[in-house]
Each structure stands twice: as C-alpha cells, then as structure tokens.
Design a protein around this nucleic acid. Structure first.
Lengths: 238, 238
DNA sequence: CAAATCAAAACAGTATACATTATAGACTTA
DNA sequence: TAAGTCTATAATGTATACTGTTTTGATTTG
C-alpha cells in the first residue's frame, strides 16, 4: 500500500481527460502492480484536484475494460484463459482487414515511423528491456492503426489489443515470445512497404495466431479458479 | 423545451445504472427526436434525483457512441454516409462469425424466442407498425446474440448494430426494406434451427450486405451540409 | 430595418460535503 | 486455537453548490 504512482500534470483539455490520459498511460506502461488498487481520492489529492474528474476518468477506464471497479478501489482486471481466447477471437476477425486497409493508406512518414519502431523493438529485444520492447510494440501498432481510415475499426482494435497486452505485460519479457513477435512485425512491415494489402492481411492473420499461442502457452492454465467460471465482474454493483 | 420524455423509475442497482438503462432504452426505442437535447439537470429533476448519476449515465452513453456531448446538452449523433459504411464494415467482420457460434449454442428456449420475435416482426410489417417491427427486430438480434458465448464479441456487435439502427429508425418504416430484413431474419432463423453454423455464417453475411445496401439507399445522399464524406461511394478494399 | 454589441440565461465542469456499504480486523466464545 | 460475529473504517455512491463558458436574445446604433 501507500504506493507512489506519481501521476503528473498534463495541460490539455478538461481535468477528466487529463486524468484519463495519465492513468491510461500508466496502465499501458505496466507501471501498475497486478493487485494494486487505484483510489480516486488518493489520486485527486496527488494532483491537487477534486475527486470528481478522477472518478469520471476511472469509470471511463472501467467501461473500456482497462480497470475493474470493486467496492474497494479500482484495480487491474484478472483475465482468465477464456477471456484471452475471447479477445483474440475478436482480434482475429478485425486486425487482418485493418492491416489490409493500412497497406493502402500508409504514407512515407508512417512507414518511416514503423521502421523506427521496428528497430527500437529489435534493440530492446537485444538489450532484454521488456518495457522498452513493449513501448516499441505499441508505437508500431498505433502507427499503422492510425492510418486505418475506419476510426471505429481502429479504435475497437486498439482497445482489445490493449486489454490483452496490458495484463500480460510480464510475459513479454519471455525471450522466445519477443522473437516471435519481432518476426511478425518484420513480415507485416514488409507487406506495408510493398503496399501489398493481401500480404498484410495474411501476415497479420498469422501474427495474431502466433501471438495467441504464445500468450496461451505462457499464461498459467488456471489463473485462479477454473477459468470460464468467473469473467471480469462488470462494474461493481450495478 | 419541456420535453415529456417520461423516464420512469426502475429498481435495480445504483442510480447511475438505472438512469443508464432508462435512457438507453429510450434511445433504442427511437423515442428521441433527432435534434432533441438531453440535459442532465432536467432528467434529474424528472426522476427526483441529483445531477451526478444522470451525468454519469449520459457520459457513459457518449463513450459508447449512443450520444454526443455538445456544449449545450447531449443529443443523438448525426451519422454521415462514411460513418454508416464504417459501422457496417465492422459488422460484416464480426456478425457472421457470431451467428456461427449461435448456431451451435442456441437451445430450444432460444429458438422459441427467435420464432416468436420473427412472427412478431411479420405481424408488425403487415400492420405497418414500424416501431413494433423495430422492437421485434431488436428482440431477435438480442436473443441470438445472447447465445454467443464470447461476451466481448456479442457486446461489440450489439453496440455497433444499435448505433446504426437507432439513428436510422425512420428508414425502417420503408416497406421494401422491411421485406428484405424479414427475409434475412427467416433465412438466419432456419439456419439456427438446423444448427448449421456454416449456413448461419453465410446468411448473416448476406443479411448484413443487404441491410447496408438498404440503409445507404435510403439515407439522403447529403445528410446536412455535404462534406467530403458523402461522395465516397463505398470503402472498397484493395 | 439591419447589424453589431452586450447582457442574461443555460449548461457542462469542478469542488465539497454527506450517506451508504462492504471488507478487514479485532474480539469473543466454544 | 480456530471459527464466527461484530464493529470500525475505507472507499464508493449521491447530493448540492459554485464557476466558467457559450449561446441566445434583446437592445441600441448606424
């Protein structure tokens, strides 16, 4: 307890949006221990603002699946094997198509960013820096997703991808997994460079399947009790 | 304005959840004029509660895409042709798969409910009652979606389907459109009865394509000012 | 009569205070 | 010593009040 998570101020938009961004980034960077609880009044005190904007932001994150709201603070969700399988099923349906779109619409600047993210991921893998690898991975994904012109498609993908990555951040330190992911990123990047929508579709399909296999293999077969029994509890006590 | 939208109390869970359900049902039933604005303080006064739960509920609906928050109250979003095309693209990717799942998992009670909803839709079409037709349509969809074991998949579908239906409710009064939708429902229902996942997949694919065509045909080519969006024929792939 | 400026109202954002509830920990008892 | 109950507390849920901003409408002026 008494965790100094250190949210810092960012000056953009209303307070709720600022807090939302800060907390989301904190979650996405894996700077949140699995059992740790976020309490609105604590964060509010830390930022020198009132509870309400913080509460709004936390509830939005709950609604988006980044957090679960209990009667005793907000915490990270614990995904069961079934949850992960469900998320990957949706990703399998959406991401190949989105990648095909991106192959058409990515411009030179986007490809440059992708190349940089890819190199960064490779460097991080060599250095064994899981957090950096994770960051580069996210940058890569956000870049090509940003080129997808269907906003609803890209945003849905981003959310689901976040859910599985955020909770399983630790598994990304696994060396073979990093290698598999890197190979997938390279293959997809090459398809983007060639503007080959079909190849992008196929390689993304393959990438998702590989990623799911790695995740399922690394996740304990029984996270708590038997999976399937209890999914993410919807927000608190609605 | 003094709009008599008449939200009524429902006794379940906390106030925010109650208000959320009420407003969402009101929207889904099309009981909200396109330009009408929802003001938290008004609804709160109507329900005899404070602003905060109402505000929470409205903001959640905004996050889910059911409403848009302006500087002057919350209103229904106005979807452009591009928006509709985007939503249908996601639905095309998700719903056939979900229907295949449902074909496996629907039980006798579910099939009974589907049959009842189908009959209700047919009766409503004959009677020319668009609202009733719409209700039956929603019941049919919610029933088979409820049998899909992947919650994230079914919830994502429900949201996107709501978005397009809610805003275009009026187009459902169009007679040929009703006929097309009815035929699709019958075909899908038969696939469910036969527990034929492949047929369910194919017929849902066909159904979505037909529905999109009808929607695009009936939506005025220029919803308001014609911006760049309307002239885009269809978001073709490569 | 039309246009521009100013004032008032409406509504979201934020803050603070109060009520409610569930969990943790202590205390009692077998 | 272990199990069950009870109380205190921590954290959310709800209410009310205040502030800032934007829109609307009215009034004045050209």
């Amino acid at each position: 307890m008494a965790e100094p998570i250190e949210f810092k101020q960012v000056g953009e938009g209303n307070l709720r949006a600022q807090v939302y961004q800060q907390v989301r980034l904190t979650i996405q960077r894996g700077e949140l221990a699995p059992g740790q609880k976020l309490v609105d009044v604590d964060i509010a005190a830390q930022l020198g603002i009132s509870r309400m904007p913080v509460r709004d932001a936390l509830m939005q994150l709950v609604h988006e699946g980044y957090l679960v709201g209990t009667t005793r603070g907000f915490t990270l969700p614990t995904l069961t094997a079934t949850d992960i399988a469900n998320i990957f099923e949706v990703r399998r349906l959406l991401e190949p198509r989105a990648a095909a779109h991106a192959a058409r619409t990515l411009d030179a600047a986007g490809l440059k960013t992708l190349a940089a993210s890819l190199q960064e991921a490779e460097a991080a893998a060599v250095a064994g820096d899981a957090a950096r690898f994770f960051q580069a991975n996210s940058a890569f994904r956000n870049c090509w997703l940003g080129a997808v012109e269907n906003d609803r498609l890209s945003q849905t993908i981003a959310r689901f991808a976040d859910h599985v990555l955020v909770v399983r951040l630790k598994t990304l330190s696994h060396q073979p997994t990093q290698a598999v992911i890197l190979a997938g990123m390279r293959a997809i990047y090459e398809a983007f460079v060639k503007r080959d929508a079909v190849a992008a579709y196929d390689r993304m399909t393959h990438f998702i399947q590989n990623a799911e296999e790695r995740f399922m293999k690394l996740s304990p077969p029984s996270q708590q009790f038997d999976d399937e029994a209890v999914s993410i509890p919807r927000q608190g006590k609605s």
